[in-house]
Design a protein around this nucleic acid. Structure first.
Lengths: 345, 345
DNA sequence: CTGAAAGCGCTTACAG
DNA sequence: CTGAAAGCGCTTACAG
């Protein structure tokens, strides 16, 4: 297709009457170039519309200036959940600021996440990887550590024994505060319906919930804790279970808005008053939580900031080799689902 | 960081007792290699864990096997709207099937979409581009045609005089059918509140609406047609306008679910019965349209399929140079917002 | 069917 | 401060 002759470093060199090496040094802002030469070379580059070939550059200095991201295949993880989209925005924005590009891949057939990473890494297409979640026994993390390839995860290690770059919310505290809020609203029997129990985020959110209950001397009841998936069905199913089995909580904490919708749908069907009879609170502050018939109290985890910070940490690591972690503050939005006093909503 | 010595084509050649050229030919499945040699070389590649360096390959054959995608910056275009996310999934899936990767970039500061494309193209990082929308006077399309760079747009040209690769729904027909449905429900005065009027999709959806009205001899009233943005505010504002100015339509067609939510919010506030007093229908079949207090009739445009087909068309074009267009069928979901007879919802 | 050689467009020690 | 040369890891006409 493209048969347009590219202008190369040689053309610039010829025009500026210097060697290609010099042009290369001008491009990379080498300090050992006279200002005069630099100016002349830059002028010629402009004149010729020269733009360095990133591929050639990558080959020569063994770095692609590209970050890899494996897109999850399970629709539940991306299609429905705005988290991925917002985090992605943050990642791309952060990368752009640092002059990196983002390569998006997915897997198919018999492959898994690790296969797709291996491919990109072996092919030298990427310099580092962003992992969008952290699981209890995370094979992707294990793999990347084994081959000692730069990465940063959005999420946390299970415990502090594992050390790697990561950025996360303080999910324990967020969940703790949310539970406290429900207690402050006079709720005595608070259930939690959480997402995938293999996600560290789930583990942490349950932990925060338990912490608040223990602290305020409420009972910690096994019958009030459930895990499932990040979807509406999980919420509906366990809400139904709770009431059909006469466990009858007066508040339900969901770890994702989608789960909360399922909960609310059940409550509405049964004409259970929200928040008076049962309060609901949740995570992610998606547009649904704001627009829903009954606006839902929800924690904004600032997914875009998580994404942006993850890239920054990764790039810094690639340049300086220092492992970092960063906690992004959350914001709790109190709405009608948990507080009859709630003003605007 | 990475000081692991890569195994290269030379290592394989040495082990297999052939020249690097031969190994290269085995990699690219050249037919002029004896089966025996091929087998031996493949064995050695496996043994050494060899994986071709994509960057070196790109440099040598001037093709990156990567497709570029410019992520819109305006939050309204991506953050809130699931269209982008679903289309992206389709794009990445389609690319993976064809062994392509997807490079995601955005712009910042004084740049625009075209600057970021220019960068990626000049740097030889991508072989083709997917455009996620088409506008009335689309500079991105103009630019790509000028430099004769392969691209495919999700959307349509304004008229058939412009020829380029694209995939789209038949928005005129979809809108026509939706309007007909409202007429069939007994509605006589149907308003349309559309998104950005510079988008071809908006133009087409208004056209389909008008076509249905003209055909059924309803009046075509300028006071019933509004354009704004793809957001809730637009819906709320114009719904309010329609009723405060006593235009009082008995149905409102929105061109996006977010717009529809704004409309519904206004109607609920004013205690206007849906669908009896005012019916509402919309586009995109987002999860909100299904989960909302009042489930909203909406057209599923199958954004993921649009994305997947766009990549396929683009890749075919890059290989064979044939310009193509494809129409992805839509699905209309009738729900309570427009039909009291609607069963499940 | 296979190999030697040149080349893709850069970078970077080395030498001056 | 600048240049000549080698090299990054492939591909591909050309020759045999």
């Amino acid at each position: 297709m493209q048969s347009i002759k590219r202008t190369t470093i040689k053309d610039v060199a010829k025009m500026a009457n210097v060697s290609p090496s010099t042009v290369s040094r001008v491009i990379s802002n080498s300090p050992r170039i006279s200002e005069e030469t630099a100016k002349r070379v830059k002028y010629c580059m402009n004149e010729l519309g020269y733009y360095p070939n990133a591929i050639a550059r990558s080959l020569a200095n063994k770095t692609s200036n590209t970050i890899g991201l494996i897109m999850p295949v399970r629709p539940g993880e991306t299609l429905l959940n705005p988290f991925f989209q917002e985090a992605l925005r943050g990642i791309v924005r952060g990368a752009t600021v640092c002059s990196y590009d983002v390569l998006l891949a997915t897997f198919q057939g018999g492959e898994d996440e690790i296969d797709s990473m291996r491919k990109l890494i072996s092919a030298s297409k990427i310099d580092g990887v962003i992992l969008m979640t952290s699981r209890v026994n995370d094979n992707a993390i294990k793999y990347l550590r084994e081959i000692n390839f730069p990465f940063c995860v959005i999420g946390s290690p299970l415990d502090d024994k594992q050390i790697f770059n990561h950025v996360d919310n303080d999910n324990i505290t967020a969940s703790y505060e949310l539970t406290k809020h429900l207690i402050d609203e006079g709720k005595k029997k608070i259930a939690i319906i959480a997402g995938d129990k293999n996600l560290i985020a789930t583990v942490h959110r349950i932990k925060g919930y338990e912490k608040a209950l223990i602290e305020t001397q409420c009972k910690l009841d096994e019958n009030l804790i459930y895990t499932g998936d990040f979807d509406e069905k999980t919420g509906y199913t366990y809400a139904k279970y709770l009431f059909e089995n006469k466990i009858n909580p007066d508040a339900i904490l969901a770890t994702d808005d989608l789960v909360a919708f399922g909960v609310v749908r059940y409550l509405l069907e049964k004409d259970i008053k929200i928040p008076d009879e049962v309060a609901v609170a949740s995570f992610n502050n998606s547009i649904l939580s704001r627009q829903f018939q009954i606006p839902i109290t929800s924690v904004d985890i600032h997914a875009d900031t998580l994404g942006e910070e993850a890239v920054k940490i990764l790039i810094e690591y690639m340049q300086e080799g220092k492992v970092k972690r960063k906690i992004v503050p959350h914001t709790i939005h109190i709405r009608r689902s948990s507080s009859s006093k709630s003003s605007r909503f």
